[in-house]
């Protein structure tokens, strides 16, 4: 009577139970599996698990079961590592994008009076968990990205860029590496906005950001510092190298003609370059040195690159 009750319960469980002998033949399974695999009891019992579920990664599966058999200890396989082992249908085919049931599988050694009789595999449907976790991960990724990116120009925003600078600054300090900073400001941007409207101005910002991005190497960190001001962090770069990059940026911006409502917009940039110096103790000093050089470039007639001078640092 208790046996009957146990059988009944195992057939009502929302967990799959699959009982294999040590040669991987199916000795028993419960209703959950019968229904979700959509296979007939009679065609399954006594057959090799690999013929009933040909999708199983055979070598992996055998190695996994060998640990259960040899160590007589249970083993697991979670959906985060393998979405599913068995191709089973699940109860949310419409409201999730999972084709097969996401599964947590537990492999249990079945011992009867000390002798290993076989392996019991418990298969839990975690399609729900998997679905919501994936949605959460996606939302977190988007959030993390939008937290770093300037919506208009798709470059790093000021906050993230400054965090990057702080990190690069202390890294350069620690390892005594070079570090250069290029700050650029578009010339007469207010006039440009007045002439072409703010949408024209926005387009110039977007196109300028694209043009600069093309010139950068991996590891360079490009951000929008403010309104029409951009900044590039150049790790492991000395003053001469940074000047070269800055000059290429200046030329590229000056050559870039932007089509806007059948008109052509040309724009130039003034650029200040500074490198890390033994006197700089804070990354903010690097910014102000580059800023002073940028101001000098503006004062000398714009569309040019100026370098921060040692004398300015003292």
């Amino acid at each position: 009577m208790l046996d009957e009750f146990c059988l009944d319960i195992s057939n009502r469980l929302n967990t799959g139970i699959l009982f294999l002998d040590c040669d991987y033949n199916i000795i028993m399974w419960n209703r959950f599996l019968e229904v979700h695999a959509n296979k007939n009891d009679n065609d399954v019992i006594g057959k090799s698990v690999f013929s009933i579920f040909p999708e199983l990664p055979r070598k992996w599966f055998e190695r996994k079961l060998s640990s259960v058999i040899q160590l007589k200890t249970q083993s697991f396989c979670g959906w985060e590592q393998r979405h599913h082992l068995f191709e089973l249908f699940h109860s949310r085919p419409i409201t999730t994008d999972s084709h097969f049931m996401a599964q947590n599988c537990t492999f249990l050694p079945v011992e009867i009076s000390g002798e290993l009789e076989g392996i019991c595999i418990l298969i839990e449907d975690v399609t729900d968990v998997c679905h919501y976790q994936n949605q959460l991960n996606k939302a977190l990724e988007e959030l993390a990205l939008s937290n770093r990116i300037d919506g208009l120009t798709q470059t790093f925003n000021r906050k993230h860029w400054e965090e990057c600078l702080a990190k690069e600054f202390s890294r350069a300090r620690r390892h005594q590496h070079d570090l250069a900073l290029v700050m650029l400001d578009l010339d007469h941007f207010k006039l440009l906005n007045d002439t072409f409207g703010h949408q024209g101005g926005d387009l110039v910002l977007v196109e300028t950001a694209k043009a600069v991005t093309k010139l950068l190497r991996m590891g360079d960190l490009f951000g929008r510092y403010g309104g029409e001001e951009f900044a590039v962090i150049l790790p492991n770069t000395n003053l001469a190298g940074a000047e070269e990059v800055a000059e290429r940026i200046r030329q590229s911006i000056a050559k870039n003609t932007i089509r806007y409502q059948d008109r052509t917009i040309s724009v130039t940039a003034s650029i200040g370059v500074a490198t890390i110096d033994s006197i700089d103790t804070r990354y903010e000093d690097l910014i102000s040195n580059a800023d002073i050089a940028l101001y000098e470039a503006k004062a000398k007639g714009r569309n040019r690159v100026c370098l921060a001078k040692e004398t300015l640092l003292a």
Binding site: W60, S67, L71, Q74, S75, G78, Q81
Partner: peptide
């Protein structure tokens, strides 16, 4: 004892951990 491409790094350390923990605690 797995093939290189059979298992991700995550799965490897989870597998090893489970073996270490359960054999010891058993």
């Amino acid at each position: 004892g797995y093939e290189d491409d059979e298992m991700s790094f995550d799965e490897q350390i989870i597998d090893l951990s489970s073996i270490l923990t359960t054999t010891f605690l058993n």
